[in-house]
Amino acid sequence: MNTLFCTLAQSGWPEPMPTGTLFHYLVISAAMFVIGLIGFVTRRNLIIMFLCTELMFQAAGLSLIAFSRFHLNHTGETFVIFVLTVAAAEAALALALVVLLFRRKESLDAERWAELRG
């Protein structure tokens, strides 16, 4: 726990982050993005598909913060604020659409809308 509190206490002046450490965080972020992608293409429930897009947003945010820490400026963190904004807007609209689709078909199955393929 000590290291965690040290990180918090010295937040104003963190040490430079070595490139290898940055790569650790980026691999975690890439893995999270890929998990979200796999979920998006394999799950059939519309709500879970949107949850998977949020997972991908989250992975992108993680790598933005990692680069922000690596370059020791706050632009990446600022961008995460905008990612949060877009995620909130997307959640509101997408969930309203999901409710509409559910009311029309009484089902959340994405394959029930296969006729949209044209």
Binding site: T7, S11, P14, E54, R69, E77, L84, A91
Partner: peptide, 24 residues
């Protein structure tokens, strides 16, 4: 927090876990 981005950490918890996920 480990990357010393405390503000975004707490904003994330409040906005995501507190608002967006509740909508879900």
């Amino acid at each position: 927090v480990l990357m010393s981005a405390e503000f975004m950490a707490f904003a994330l918890i409040i906005v995501y876990a507190g608002a967006i996920l509740i909508t879900y």
